[in-house]
Nucleic acid binder design. Structure first.
Length: 918
RNA sequence: GCCGAAGUGGCGGAACUGGUAGACGCGCUGGAUUCAAAAUCCAGUAAUGGCAACAUUGUGUGGGUUCGAGUCCCACCUUCGGUACCA
């Protein structure tokens, strides 16, 4: 009987489902293990072989954990709200729900075919009202809570109201609070809520009549159509993630995440310690606040720079400078953020005409506007210290502004301008003679004493915009009464999306939902919010729902949450480092503060899987002809490289007939061959339809089977690393499975159709046990450290050895079957049943490791003398325990071997002499 | 700029705390089997020299530590990923 994967795989997949093998039940007697994949957005394109990489890894890990007696949760679901479905709806009029459902069906079928151990019963779909009911509910919690700095945690907004009524705040008394109208009170509270309304700029495209995402804007023009895009202020929802900046930053240290990822989050949070300081204008009419991390260089400030968008710009511009400033503004307005970042080296700016007084020296400093100061960071204004800041220096030189050196670096000639470690203050009044850390402290003390500045911690992190003017997202559970937002009651959730006639934007900046008037007008004087939540809303808590997906009383029950507690292993792409992973942590922290989850951090260990790149095939066309020259000869001609579909190329050889049929234009193509074949060139690049290099997992399953696909994806290289998909290599994985199969069903010349496995009940020999136990040790250690590539190699080695030993014993093959099961579950299941088992191999317990078989043999090994290998193969010199302890005996043993020469030093590793020094 | 990761055969990659570099797989070469092919099996495969045993050189470059370095330290080069003109 041959290995017939196309028969085996559907058979066991159906059986697993029938038997409910992967149904997860909380079992408090076992240790739990929660293994999570980033759930996919069900795009219309389906899966390519890159997508399942991480899923296969978690599948192996979770199956291994089941074998080793853990209660495992390994779920899958769909991040189903998103732009592509909406885009498609706009073009075709098809409801995004339909498109999404169809895509989910395709994805599910593709995933099932690979044989994952998901409990599909626990699948969550973010666009399902039964799910987004709880997304809305969590939004309500965010609205109803604020961040209390005293306890560094979220507290009910009702507590804050009570406090205002009793003792007021720093801005108003209790009586003043009570005198406020409802609107006024709500406005005050809005400044505290974790979900709040505020005005902010959006990318507005007049021609398309819609708001665009940053990705949809290129160089100030819309990506589609190329229409101009301007900033427009709109009232929108925000989440106050900045309140959690410090917690999100510090908790990072406790997470087992890739360093690069943590670093990205740190940079994104962007904490910097410094001081704020107020500069008064020359006429004393205006105060300009700046933020600096270098208060020590205060005396080196020779001018001040404000962002062109600074709120005091008009007030500070003098009559004589007005024209130049307006001209500069026009220039800046025409530049996108991307432009501004692209040529950071160009120095531009304009003088305002006004001056500020230096708060310590009293000198007059000119105020400039320049685009290198960003309105959105700090206060949008800086004191420019050309002596100690590269950008300020370039600016001063360009506009011939004075430069005062304030740090004496003569003792450290190699130190740079922005060096904060070395040097002594000079030209700086009371700071003279101090080193930089001392001066920073002294300057801050002085600013605070004078009441013109204070210590301040600045974050780069911004509150998260939470409104989208789109249809296909979660509706906000919010009603407006006279412009004041009110939440729906819990009983009114979920608030479902209305049906609309058109998915096109309304043209006035509202989402398509605004056209559903019956829905919007919820009652007299009551209007619903017409924006929807952004794509990341549903993915900010989904891992919690998997714990208890059918609960209609809570987003997760306390009991289930305590059982699963935290994701033990989270695998996904690094592209979500500062988006999803940041928001997910933030939501989890808030839920933790509310006592709804038991851990502040959702994902204990995180691994980023590397991208699987495509391997494109290239043909070389002679310029101006329809003749193609083989790769090896192309340098002799002048050619253009063109991509060809990898399906008509096998082992880099082009199928000439298929090529001629591929495109009409190549019907009469001519070829210059080498060795009688056309060899294609290749290039490793992103898998994309454009390069004709996309490999579909369905095709691989068709041709080689899911088990081969799984094995090969793991064998390709380390999980975290980017690696190219090379179809040529897949035969090796397939061959391995065939070899494995043949251990059970050896094909003898006499009996071609032996249908029963040829298994003996004999006892295993020590040699066989050695191979087996080495493999158990290696494979389990490798799975634990997620080194699936080397685990597969170890299995291959074992099979080769058993093959050459002619092993047919149950005592060996049964455990081997379990070892293989996480990697190639279908074949393992088939063989497991062929050996007479009735229950699934998934539930079998992992073979027990017997360390006695791991001990090294005491046979020949090499010994070096003076670091140089003396005898490659030598009789054993392994020492007895006593000899290792007793220097004398050791010398004796070695001396004997060295023909009586006494060694000076003997290097022993694991009880064996490795090197002898004479 | 800055931050992070990585440079090993023709290719993907092994080598866990410093201990025989190149496991495993692909590809290639030769052989067996076959009418032939596919499939399968066996042998070889870092480079140079040698019939061979073997010798020498070899993990991006240059130094260093060590009996011993792909692995540790210093300097540099290259590639990839991230990013913020962040005061």
């Amino acid at each position: 009987m041959d290995y017939n994967f196309s028969e085996i795989e559907p058979k066991w997949q159906a059986w697993w489902e029938e038997q409910g093998v992967y149904r997860v039940l909380e079992d408090p007697t076992k240790p739990k293990c929660y293994v999570l994949d980033m759930f996919p957005y069900p795009s219309g394109a389906g899966l390519h072989v890159g997508h399942p990489l991480g899923y296969i890894a978690t599948d192996i890990y979770s199956r291994y954990k089941r074998h080793t007696g853990h209660c495992v949760l390994h779920p899958m679901g769909f991040d189903a709200f998103g732009l592509p479905a909406e885009q498609y709806a706009i073009e075709t009029g098809q409801h995004p729900r339909l498109t999404t459902e169809q895509n989910i069906t395709t994805f599910t079928a593709q995933l099932r075919r690979i044989g994952f151990d998901y409990d599909w019963d626990r699948a969550v779909i973010t666009a399902d009202p039964a799910y987004y009911r709880w997304t809305q509910w969590i939004f309500c919690q965010l609205f109803e809570h604020y961040f209390e700095p005293e306890v560094q945690a979220a507290r009910p907004i009702a507590d804050l109201e009570k406090r205002f009524a009793q003792q007021g705040s720093s801005d108003f008394s209790a009586d003043q609070w009570k005198a406020m109208s409802r609107q006024e009170q709500q406005q005050v509270l809005m400044a505290y809520r974790l979900a709040y309304l505020d005005y902010a700029d959006v990318n507005w495209c007049e021609a398309l009549g819609t708001v665009l995402a940053n990705d949809e804007v290129k160089d100030g023009l819309s990506e589609r159509g190329g229409h101009p895009v301007v900033k427009r202020r709109m009232r929108q929802w925000f989440l106050r993630i900045t309140a959690y900046a410090d917690r999100l930053l510090h908790q990072l240290d406790l997470l087992d995440w890739p360093l690069a990822l943590k670093e990205m989050q740190r940079n994104w949070i962007g904490r910097s310690e410094g001081a704020s300081c107020v500069f008064s204008t020359q006429d004393g009419l205006h105060q300009i606040e700046i933020f600096t991390t270098r208060p020590d260089t205060l005396f080196g400030a020779t001018f001040m720079v404000l962002a062109p968008e600074h709120h005091l710009r008009a007030a500070l511009t003098t009559e004589t400078q007005k024209d130049s400033v307006d001209e500069y503004l026009a220039y800046v307005a025409g530049r996108s953020e991307r432009d501004r970042m692209a040529d950071a080296k160009t120095v531009t700016g304009v003088f305002s005409g006004s001056y500020v007084k230096h708060p310590l020296s009293g000198e007059l400093l000119p105020i400039w506007f320049a685009e290198y100061v960003l309105a959105g960071y700090g206060t949008g204004a800086i004191m420019a210290v050309p002596s100690d800041d590269n950008r300020d220096h370039a600016f001063a030189q360009h506009f011939s502004l004075p430069i005062i050196e304030v740090i004496d670096r003569s003792a450290h000639p190699q130190s740079s301008r922005e060096d904060r470690e070395t040097g002594v203050l000079m030209n700086s009044g009371f700071l003279n003679g101090m080193n930089i850390p001392q001066a920073i402290k002294a300057a801050m003390d002085e600013l605070e004493r004078l009441g013109i500045g204070q210590r301040k911690i600045q974050y780069r992190l911004r509150d998260a915009g939470f409104s989208r003017q789109r249809y296909w997202g979660e509706p906000f559970p919010v009603l407006y009464r006279e412009g004041v937002p009110e939440l729906l009651s819990e009983a009114e959730l979920p608030l479902q999306l209305p049906e609309v006639e058109s998915y096109r934007p309304t043209g006035d900046g509202h989402s398509p939902i605004a056209s559903a008037r019956d829905w919007v007008e919820a009652g007299p004087g009551l209007e619903r919010e017409t924006d929807t939540m952004p794509g990341y809303a549903g993915s900010s808590w989904y891992w919690l729902r998997y714990m208890d997906p059918h609960n209609s009383n809570a987003f997760v029950s306390g009991e289930r949450e305590q059982f699963w507690s935290q994701v033990d292993l989270y695998v996904g792409g690094a592209e979500h480092a500062v988006g999803h992973l940041m928001y997910a942590r933030f939501w989890n922290h808030v839920l933790f503060d509310l006592g709804l989850v038991s851990q502040p951090e959702p994902f204990r260990k995180m691994v980023n899987q590397g991208m699987i790149q495509g391997r494109s095939s290239l043909v070389y066309r002679l310029e101006g002809s329809n003749t193609f020259v083989s790769h090896g000869l192309k340098d002799q001609y002048s050619t253009t490289a063109l991509h060809v579909d990898i399906s008509i190329v096998h082992n880099d050889r082009l199928d000439l007939d298929a090529f001629k049929q591929w495109r009409e234009e190549y019907k009469n193509a001519e070829f210059i061959l080498e060795d009688g074949v056309y060899r294609c060139g290749s290039e490793v690049e992103k898998m994309s339809k454009r390069w004709y290099n996309v490999v579909n997992p369905d095709d691989v399953c068709e041709r080689y089977g899911a088990d081969t696909l799984r094995l090969y994806e793991m064998f390709l290289g380390p999980l975290e690393q980017a690696k190219p998909w090379d179809t040529r290599g897949i035969d090796g994985s397939h061959r391995f499975l065939k070899k494995f199969w043949k251990l059970f069903f050896p094909r003898d010349a006499k009996d071609e159709n032996n249908a029963i496995p040829n298994i003996s009940e004999e006892e295993a020999t020590p040699q066989e046990l050695k191979v087996l136990h080495k493999t158990i040790a290696k494979v389990s250690a490798d799975i634990e450290r997620l080194a699936f590539n080397t685990a597969v190699s170890a299995l291959m080695v074992a099979v080769n050895e058993f093959q050459s030993l002619g092993t047919r014993k149950r005592a060996i093959l049964e455990p081997m079957c379990i070892l293989l099961a996480p990697f190639a579950p279908h074949i393992a299941e088939e063989l497991w049943h062929a050996m007479g088992h009735k229950s699934p191999v998934v539930l079998a317990s992992y073979p027990k490791l017997d360390p006695q078989w791991l001990e090294e043999d005491q046979f020949e090994y090499p010994v070096s003398v003076n670091g140089k290998l003396r005898d490659k193969v030598l009789l054993s010199l392994a020492l007895e325990e006593s000899e290792i302890r007793e220097e004398v005996l050791r010398r004796d043993a070695v001396q004997k071997w060295m023909d009586g020469k006494a060694p000076r030093k003997v290097i022993v590793v694991k009880g064996k002499i490795v090197n002898v020094v004479v």
